[in-house]
Nucleic acid binder design. Structure first.
Lengths: 126, 126
DNA sequence: TTTATATATTTGCCAAGGCGAATATACTAA
DNA sequence: TTAGTATATTCGCCTTGGCAAATATATAAA
């Protein structure tokens, strides 16, 4: 049952935070590092999980790997994203993540993937 | 994060089938045995899981324990039930379960909990 | 070619949770 | 009280998937 896999993807806090952000715009691993303040290994692992289950796709661009929600989006995902977007304002963690994303948006979308090196980017994200 | 627990509840085929049926009407364990053709121990285990996580409640009536979706229903559950109801027609397993429920409905709701002994009920369900 | 950066995977460990079989509990009826 | 029925829990076993640390790979820059 495909549904089950979707729910498993949503059953982890880190993955839910990733999806919540990806619903806004494509992002690469170093973005997530800055936004979520989690170790790279953890972010990559969960993005890999989502990729294996068909929820996200990647495009390589230079040194960076950009993750985006799968296109076309699985119908089950669409419905749950709609729900997630209604819910995230009430979930402090998800709300803060989105706030941080808009706060950094100018630096993110002026060069996505970022041209600045990771350390410098992390510094800006402080 | 409460959401995570909801998704975990939905991440198992047996539990999804139970919830799908409970969205129609309250049922007791022997109903599920007849409808799903699964061992009692498995059904009880998963209903216990759903109860511990606040998705269902029980009322005892004689020898029978009747399960129903929690009331008031958690908002996150409501949204996902709506989605589930749109989806279940496309999921053969869930669709068949619902068909079997309507097929047996007369025998179920004439005495819910059933007055007939379990064996006899199972016989009817064949 | 060497070095640094960005990302992915492997390893070893651990907890959650799946299963069937057996057993316990609770209620009913005889 | 005894027997039977409905449901719940425990047990031993196994798989999934969480984590951090270490390592591998791929690209870019010097």
């Amino acid at each position: 049952m495909k549904l089950i896999n979707l729910y498993r993807c949503l059953s982890d806090v880190t993955r839910l935070r990733l999806i919540n952000l990806l619903a806004q715009q494509p992002l690469c691993v170093c973005h997530f590092e800055a936004l979520l303040r989690l170790p790279q290994t953890k972010i990559s692992r969960h993005l890999g999980y989502l990729r294996r289950h068909g929820l996200v796709t990647t495009t390589q661009r230079g040194l960076w790997r950009i993750y985006a929600l799968a296109n076309p989006r699985p119908p089950a995902l669409v419905a749950n994203l709609r729900f997630l977007q209604n819910t995230s304002p009430e979930e402090p963690r998800l709300r803060r993540d989105l706030a941080k994303l808009t706060q950094l948006a100018s630096q993110l979308d002026c060069d996505c993937p970022p041209i600045v090196p990771r350390r410098k980017f992390l510094h800006l994200a402080r």
